[in-house]
């Protein structure tokens, strides 16, 4: 085990675990022993919000696109869609990922 992992640091990642020379499958076994994958899995709140967000955005596309696209001024309308999309990405990062996944605090 690498020093980093041995220190009990939360950043025991696949890359910080020294590769075993005894074989690939042994290497995978070693990773299962040393990398606490359960610590890194997505939080339930994040999972819930992610699935709801994807479903809602799909429905928004399904309902609004036919009414707003491929009409006279669509090149302008599509810009608004793109801006709204990135804005939603920022909200999700700020309100869901940052608090639930510790995006800012986590260090490699």
């Amino acid at each position: 085990m690498s020093d980093q992992a041995a220190d009990g640091d939360q950043a025991a990642t696949a890359i910080s675990v020294q590769r075993l020379e005894s074989g690939y499958f042994d290497h995978l076994k070693s990773l299962r022993t040393q990398v606490p994958v359960g610590d890194y899995l997505i939080d339930r709140a994040t999972q819930r919000w992610a699935l709801v967000s994807m479903a809602v955005i799909s429905l928004i596309f399904l309902v609004t696109f036919p009414f707003t696209m491929f009409i006279q001024y669509t090149p302008v309308v599509i810009l608004l869609y793109m801006i709204a999309f990135v804005a939603f990405g920022w909200v999700f990062y700020d309100r869901v990922l940052e608090p639930n996944e510790g995006m800012e605090e986590w260090e490699d």
Binding site: A11, T13, A14, I15, S16, F25, L28, L31, R32, V35, V37, Y40, L41, I42, T46, Q47, W49, A50, S53, M54, I57, S58, G89, F92, V96, L97, E101, M103, W106, D108
Partner: peptide
């Protein structure tokens, strides 16, 4: 929606764990 799945669910986990490949991820 495919890109949202990547960003919302996969990006944080896999960047933190930092596996060598998708197979290594499934292996661990």
């Amino acid at each position: 929606i495919r890109f949202l799945f990547w960003a919302f669910l996969m990006a944080a986990v896999l960047r933190k764990v930092n596996p060598f490949s998708i197979s290594e991820w499934f292996g661990m």
